[in-house]
Simulated scan of single mutants.
Amino acid sequence: MDPLLRGEQAVLGAVLLDPPQLGYLDWLEPRDFYRPAHQAIFAAMRTLRAVGLPTLTAEGEVPLAWLTDTFTEAGKHVRGLTASYQHTLIAACPQPARAPIYGRMVLEGSIHRTVAEHATRLLSVADEGARQHTAEGTIAQADILAGVLADLARRWGTHPRPQAPPASPPAVIAPPPTPAQEDEQFLLALLVHQDGAIEGVFDWLRPGDFADPRHGQLYRCLGALHHRGEPIDPVTTLWEVQRRGLLAQGALTEEHLAFVLGSGVAGSAEWLGEQVLSGSVNRTASAAAQQIVAQTDDDRLAPGQLINQALHALGPVDDVRARWSRAVRQPTPESQPEPDHSTRVHAALTRSTAQATIRALPSLRSAMATEAAPHQGRGPATASPRNHP
C-alpha cells in the first residue's frame, strides 16, 4: 500500500465530492502530484473553476457535469482515464472536509521528490564538471538548488535556515581521477621550486581542496613555511614534513615526495591552482548532492527539516565557491600595464634568493648605469631604451 498514492487519491476524491474544497487548495500545484493522471485531473479541476464551472445547486448537490467535464478535460492531456476511476478516487476519500490535510501530504511528497531531483541534477553536473575541469556549471546548478529550497520553504510555510542533522554522515567522495592528481603534483612541485609562486594561490587555495589528502598535507607544510616567512625549497619542505611527523606516521613516504621535491617544473601556479580548486568545487558539490539525496530517501524527515538540512549540506559549497570567485577574478597579466625596465629589475631582485641578489647587485648597477647613459648599439645585459618605450 502506497501512502502517497492514497493521499493523492484522497485529495482528488475530496474535490470531486465537494468542489468548494478546491478553494482551500490554491497553494497546491498540479506538478505536486506524482502520477501524471492525477496532475491532469487536478489541472482540469482548476481549469473548470476558472471558466465558472461547476456551481452547486441550492440543495447542495454536486452536478454530474462536474465529474464528467473534469475527466473529459483531463483526458485531453493524459490517456487511460476511465469513468470507473472516478469511483476509485471518491472511495479513497474518508472525509471531503479534510482536503487541505490530504493536500499537505501531497505537497510533502512533492517537496521530497523536488529536492531529490535537483540534488541528483547537481550530482550529474558536478561529475561532468570534474571530467571537463570546469566549475561554472556546478556553481550555477548549486545556485538553482539553493533557490529551489528557498521556494519550497516558502510554500511549506517555514523560514529557510541551515540545520545540521542529528548525526552528519561522512561525505562520500569518489576517488580522484588521475588528471587531478597530476595537476596537484605539478602545482606542488612548482610551489617548491619556483620562488614566490605560493603567493599567487595562498589567499584562496586550502589543503582540503586537494583530491589526494597526501597532497593536502604537503601543501599545508608549504603554507606553514610561507606564513612564517621562511623560504620554500626542497630542503626546507622536507624538514617541515619531518617536523610535523608526516614521515614517521607514514602519511607521506619518499615515493610520494619524489616527484614534488625531485626536480623543478615550469608553469603557472595560478592556473594550476584554479584547476585544483575547480576539482574541489565539483567534489564538494557532489558530496553535498549525495548527502541531500540520501536525506530525501528518509520519509521520517518533515519537509521543513529536509529543506534546512539540505541547506546545511550546501554550506561547504558556498565556502569553496567564494574562494573560486576570488581566484578567477584576479587580474590577468594582459590586463596589467607593462612595467618599465626599473620595475622589472626590482621584480627580478625580489624573486631572487638573498645570496643571488648580493652577487647580482654590482652587475645590475652597472647595467642600469649603462642604460641611463646615451650609447649606440646593444648593451651587454639589458635591452636598449628604444625597445622599452
Rank of each mutant, 00 (worst) to 15 (best):
A92C: 07
L314I: 13
A373Q: 15
A189D: 05
G60E: 08
V201I: 10
D319G: 13
D32K: 00
E240L: 11
D298T: 14
N387F: 08
G315H: 15
E73I: 05
L48E: 09
D203P: 05
D183W: 06
L252Q: 06
E371V: 14
T158F: 01
T88P: 03
P160W: 12
A153E: 10
D212A: 12
I111V: 15
R214W: 06
E108W: 01
R79D: 10
A74I: 05
A164I: 14
R321G: 07
R323F: 08
P380T: 13
D18A: 09
E184A: 02
P179G: 08
A99N: 06
G103D: 02
L12D: 00
P303W: 06
A302D: 10
H112F: 10
Q217Y: 06
D32I: 00
L123A: 13
L252T: 12
P30I: 03
Y102D: 00
I198P: 10
D319Q: 13
R131S: 15
R365L: 15
S352V: 13
V15S: 05
T178G: 11
A171G: 14
H388M: 02
S366K: 11
V265F: 05
L25Q: 05
Y102M: 00
A369S: 15
L64G: 12
G264S: 04
G157S: 05
T57K: 05
R161M: 14
T57V: 00
V241S: 05
E184Y: 01
E136H: 03
Q39R: 15
